[in-house]
């Protein structure tokens, strides 16, 4: 007897469609990016990449990502712990609130930050009085990046921690372990793969974020320009090769991230198969 959906004709049709769509919408653009970037040779690509503004944009982007990750990591673990290990009024609402950064358009997020922390904003005007400038400077970029990436770690952890339950932690405590020891020796090893996966996603988004950052950055070349913003500027200046060189860099970071993720998944499944 044939299983449902196992008719050879349908199967072939679906596989063809999937391959075709993936090639057309995923693979081709990727190839196009690199083709464009190297269209005038490696030397031109290299000149574009080693341009002082590009280098600064790369640096700023990486610094923002490096600062974002630990913040999101701590925030995500704390939130997941809170939501899965305690019962309190408002728990459900909190779980919904976590998703706001996903639900809201990044541009809107940027605008709200501008409204609050900009020079004329509610908090911004107070800070301005103390000579602190957040918007149109790197702290603003960092703030909105954290905003758009903060759900990733928590979202990865919550279902896992819910499924794993609290029994192992209870067991650890009955055996005399302190709260920190329990976290370090029981909780953390159980969630480390999800945690790493969350970090990879956070990193990918932090590096690539455009909408929110473009609103609050001011895009001052050599000062507040991240790589995606820099790319867009180059493109607006009719410097296609330059734009695509930056695009190639971003794509490269994305590919590395995906490779890291695949490697982690491969390791995790191998561990499962082994045990």
């Amino acid at each position: 007897m044939r299983r449902v959906g196992d008719a050879p004709a349908i199967r072939r049709l679906l596989i063809t469609a999937a391959v075709l769509l993936s090639a057309l919408f995923l693979l081709l653009p990727l190839v196009a990016i690199f083709a464009q970037a190297f269209s005038q040779g490696v030397a031109v690509f290299w000149t574009n990449v080693s341009n002082v503004y590009t280098l600064h944009a790369i640096g700023l982007t990486l610094v923002i990502a490096l600062l974002t990750i630990p913040v999101c990591l701590v925030f995500g673990v704390a939130l997941a712990w809170l939501v899965t290990r305690f019962r309190f009024p408002g728990r459900r609402i909190l779980q919904t609130l976590i998703d706001i950064p996903f639900a809201v358009s990044p541009v809107v997020a940027g605008l709200v930050y501008l409204l609050l922390y900009g020079r004329g904003g509610w908090i911004g005007s107070f800070l301005d009085g103390h000579d602190i400038q957040l918007m149109f400077a790197w702290p603003g970029i960092l703030m909105v990046t954290i905003f758009v990436t903060c759900p990733f770690v928590a979202r990865e952890l919550i279902p896992l921690m819910q499924a794993q339950g609290t029994r192992e932690e209870e067991a650890a405590v009955t055996l005399g372990a302190s709260g920190f020891t329990t976290f370090r020796r029981v909780t953390l090893p159980n969630i480390k793969w999800a945690l790493l996966y969350g970090v990879i996603l956070t990193n990918a988004r932090a590096v690539g974020e455009f909408g929110a950052v473009s609103v609050v950055s001011g895009a001052i070349r050599g000062q507040t320009n991240t790589l995606p913003l820099h790319l867009e500027q180059l493109y607006q200046d009719y410097n296609a090769v330059g734009a695509f060189s930056s695009a190639a860099l971003l794509a490269l970071i994305a590919l590395l991230t995906l490779a890291a993720k695949a490697a982690l998944q491969w390791r995790a499944t191998r561990r499962e198969a082994f045990s």
Binding site: R167, E168, A171, T174, L175, G176, V186, N190
Partner: peptide, 17 residues
């Protein structure tokens, strides 16, 4: 709990996996 000096055995073992 951690200072009560009890041993607790759980229904689903709760071994550290």
């Amino acid at each position: 709990v951690r200072d009560r000096r009890i041993g607790f055995v759980f229904q689903h073992y709760a071994l550290f996996r």
